[in-house]
Nucleic acid binder design. Structure first.
Lengths: 244, 244
DNA sequence: GGGGAGAGATGCCGC
DNA sequence: GCGGCATTTCTCCCC
């Protein structure tokens, strides 16, 4: 049995590892970490050169269904086209049935660039290493060892009285989980170093409601610190012709 | 100054709230919760009817840049086309410069369907309500109160000795954070009810390494439970013609 | 609108 | 590969 003209076209672009984008009326079923089903509707389907597939509805930022790199795509066509995407490693299956194709495009896209991102938690702990007085007067960070047997500690060092201090950074609001993390790290440091006193400081822009009390109950402190931003803001908007 | 033919086309589809998809060689800069920059390369850009924008590189499941619903798109064109996306509520800005357009498509897509998803944590706690013996013999769940002042407790009830039990469900591996959650809930229940003894049970498929000891140190128990799956698995693969 | 918590989270790094 | 942890997490739901 031959494939339909559309399936044949899709097949050829898949074989060439093209970036494929099309809009279709379709149904979608997923079996894997969970089970999902989506009745007939219009969606945009993206298949990347690495065989990542994304299915987008007309609203929302997240794909309604997807499959990550490493899947095997299989086509079947009769009155309608079926795509079966199987991921052997994750033991997942995605079944798409295409009823109407609204548009179709594919091209061999090339992109060697990697995004540069600044203002994350790593930048925050870097800033504290460079400017330890942001935590408090007399704070001396130890040489950087992020991934040690002690755990994944953002910053640690000694205070002016030579007491070990563990600092947990959060970009925005410090929540209960952040306090739980800090408690685990302080406990691990105490055990591994055989110390009875280790201080814990939560460094963030603000605290979630109720966290301040919880933090103090545990014997820890809060230090207000904002994450760094290096790029200049475009204060002056570009001269524009039309807006939506 | 007039817009270029491409900008004019884009402008019209934006005005009509169409689902827009195009591939372009472009640069992208973001200012907001963090700062990012991406040098010239080939990407696929999606603009949804709700003005959500997604920028995808040829690999990976996550968009390299994006802006959620509620943004204002502004076009400027000369030798190249600039799109400025501004989100007044989130105080975010995205600047895209388009150098080459590889393909362009837009259509008024309609989708009234909502995805049906099964096998999540809610389904798991529903299953425990219906089959309380999964936790242990004699366990009696109380009426469902997910969002109380105590917090967001998955299941709670009495054991055969009339001792209050808090159950925290996890779909896959129970980790340190799950134990911390359980501890918070048990503590809040003890305080609010004035009880000295409240049991805590972590219900999940398996435990992360080290969590078993931590759980027992805190005086809590582990119960192995798998999340429910309702849809039949497609055991028999469809007859296929070609695979990738 | 903001906070808490789950997610088929994704992605990165280290072991 | 699995595990831990940040994320411009996203999304839902409730206050």
């Amino acid at each position: 049995m031959d494939l339909s003209p559309f399936s044949q076209q899709l097949h050829e672009h898949l074989a060439k590892n093209h970036f494929i984008v099309f809009a279709a009326e379709c149904t979608v079923t997923y079996h894997g970490r969970a089970e999902s089903h989506l009745e007939k509707g219009d969606r945009v389907i993206i298949i990347k050169p690495d065989k990542t597939i994304l299915i987008h509805q007309p609203t929302g930022a997240a794909p309604v269904n997807y499959m990550k790199e490493g899947a095997i795509h299989t086509l079947t066509s009769g009155d309608v086209t079926h795509i079966h995407i199987h991921h052997p490693l994750h033991k997942e299956d995605l079944f798409i049935t295409l009823y109407t194709i609204y548009f179709f495009n594919a091209a061999p896209l090339i992109d060697a660039e990697t995004i540069t991102l600044l203002g994350n938690e790593k930048d925050m702990s870097d800033m504290i290493y460079t400017n330890p007085q942001l935590i408090e007067e007399g704070f001396t960070p130890l040489s950087r060892e992020e991934h040690t047997t002690y755990g994944f500690i953002d910053v640690f060092g000694y205070d002016k009285n030579n007491v070990l201090v563990v600092v947990e950074c959060k970009r925005y609001a410090g929540d209960f989980d952040a306090v739980a993390q800090l408690a685990r790290y302080v406990e691990r440091i105490k055990q591994s170093k055989g110390l009875s006193t280790v201080r814990g400081i939560l460094a963030c822009q603000k605290l979630s409601p109720g966290v301040k009390d919880f933090l103090e109950t545990q014997g820890f402190a809060y230090k207000c610190i904002e994450p760094p931003k290096y790029f200049e803001k475009h204060k002056k908007q570009q001269k524009t012709l039309r807006s939506f």
